[in-house]
Design a protein around this nucleic acid. Structure first.
Lengths: 143, 143
DNA sequence: ATAATAGAAGATAAATTTGTCTTTAATTAT
DNA sequence: ATAATTAAAGACAAATTTATCTTCTATTAT
């Protein structure tokens, strides 16, 4: 469904949301280990999410690392897709038609429409924080 | 969601199903034009679907081309995904976790589960023929 | 100030996907 | 038989994705 990069982005952000605060930052080592992703590649991805502190925040140097502000934790998961430039996946035609729409539907449009709506709803209504909260109780896993 | 190759595979197969029979075969030129796909790349993809005549049938030489048998037209769309080696997409975890399951769910598992089931249902219950039938009436488009 | 730490930035490389082109093989019509 | 047609097969190339490594910069502790 999504690229590896976006999968790592989602997992990393959810993990950081669960473990970090402005006081407690996480190193790239810890994050990559926790979500089972290649370290350097994950660093690159976090650079994207950190750009303009849009989603993830970071500071360099000793005691530095990555964290999410309370404001960021309230953001919908869809913002991560947007930051990764993969938001379109949610809206795209299953058959890859450029012109697929209500007026000019592909053969799967009618049925896929409902699925698409639920997908979008999932990423819009679930905040990063909501996705993160159950991890520490072992209800849910990120690795 | 799917690779370009699989998108072309679905579109091409649906188009062939709608236009062809054992008596009337379609050239790769016609198919690629009809579904707006690169000709040579589409030829490669049809080679895969034609392998062992599993889904698409073909004959070489004058008046040759691609077609679908009545039996093939009755097959579920999911077989195309399988032939393309992309069937796993339907079952895969949204976050890309290898171990995501009921017992060890990812943070999106509970919500995504229902979506996944509908996706699978769509590809299992819809036959290639069913997807193809509305094209000629202009109810539905493939380009 | 200096050294140590940790992310940012950039270069590079490996792997995969997407796409093209040429040659070969099968089939048909003449 | 021969020529024409059309898909099959294979080599190759371009683009994108995934991944690594090195150097630079900011920050902190001493």
């Amino acid at each position: 469904m999504f690229s590896k990069a976006t999968e790592y982005a989602l997992r990393a952000t959810i993990y950081i949301a669960q473990k970090s605060s402005e006081e407690k930052k996480l190193s790239i080592e810890e994050i990559a280990l926790a979500i089972d992703s290649p370290k350097s590649f994950t660093a690159k991805i976090l650079q994207v999410l950190t750009k303009d502190n849009k989603i993830v925040s970071s500071v360099r140097g000793p005691n530095g690392g990555f964290y999410l502000t309370e404001k960021a934790k309230k953001m919908p998961a869809r913002l991560i897709l947007q930051a990764m430039g993969e938001d379109e996946v949610l809206e795209k035609c299953v058959l890859g038609l450029k012109q697929c729409s209500e007026l000019q539907p592909c053969p799967m449009h009618a049925q896929y429409k409902a699925i698409k709506q639920q997908l979008i709803k999932l990423f819009v209504t679930k905040s990063i924080k909501q996705l993160a909260t159950e991890i520490k109780d072992g209800v849910v896993f990120i690795k």
